[in-house]
Design a protein around this nucleic acid. Sequence first.
DNA 1: ATAAACCTTAGAGCCTACTCCAAGGTCAAG
DNA 2: CTTGACCTTGGAGTAGGCTCTAAGGTTTAT
Lengths: 157, 157
Amino acid sequence: MYRIGELADLCEVKADTLRFYEKHGLLSPSSRTDSGYRVYTDADAARLRFILRAKAVGFTLSEISELLSIDLDKSNWACADVKGMVDLKLAQVQAKIAELLHFQTSLQSLSDACCGGPRSAEHCSILEALESSTERVRVEHDHGATDCTTTLDKSGN
Amino acid sequence: MYRIGELADLCEVKADTLRFYEKHGLLSPSSRTDSGYRVYTDADAARLRFILRAKAVGFTLSEISELLSIDLDKSNWACADVKGMVDLKLAQVQAKIAELLHFQTSLQSLSDACCGGPRSAEHCSILEALESSTERVRVEHDHGATDCTTTLDKSGN
DNA sequence: ATAAACCTTAGAGCCTACTCCAAGGTCAAG
DNA sequence: CTTGACCTTGGAGTAGGCTCTAAGGTTTAT
Ligand SMILES: [Zn+2]
Ligand SMILES: [Zn+2]
Ligand SMILES: [Zn+2]
Ligand SMILES: [Zn+2]
């Protein structure tokens, strides 16, 4: 039996978070004291850990709701249903990774092209690339050099 | 000179988006017709393309605001400032990628362990793993087999 | 002249997951 | 019997980027 703050400390979340989960139907305390304090059982704690583990693999709270209701009614669901949810989430995660890898590549080539020095940004190839995308990013030389405008493939070679 | 819908079509965004950008100080039309219609110039269109390119490498609108004001006042900024923004964003993107790769690995090992078949989820190792994390995920055999409980390293070997 | 297609505004709504606040009730220690 | 730590509620705020609505004005083509 835990009060809200105890369970929160135990699982390293805030009491506010537990109230939030309750409001959204994820986790309700099994009972209340006479004065209205929430009282959580070990089963409630286990449910909270289920939620936190599912969060840790990337599920949203509404997906976790679904997983929780499947978990409470396993005999009416098949492995295919559960695996389907995991595979769908996996596909979403992979799509997001692909997008971010694209960002990473572009940012890296912008970064590589810029000298990063203290001179005026008037010659900055990052700004230039954003102003008019040429699919090639002009590389700034080490400064002190006279010429500052060699071209280079966006991939950074 | 473009009306809002024309510029929107030209750049494949919605007119609402342009109004939104205006409200947030990113892009204001250079003038208005007598009847109050927004009128965008080629310079405005160029600014919009700057915004879209910056979005395409992962910057948020408030970061783009900053980039735009630097771009309009280049002589008072250094390459270091611009590169700093790019490198910061790069670090954020990489951190997010790392998190998602972690999700990916976990989801993949959950998926691999589950038979995905039509039988009751009562034996599902995904649910089992979420119920009580053991750092190992039980692998379900191909069904039809008698035994369904070999253990396996989370990495999938 | 009229209908379709366009434009205007202010403001609300959506999504995710909290996080914080105010105003007040409860409980154990000293 | 007071202090301080804890708890209660409802509701607002945050970030990010739109998206939509209502109620009306303008332009263009037929
Ligand atoms: Zn430079
Ligand atoms: Zn530069
Ligand atoms: Zn199975
Ligand atoms: Zn399964």
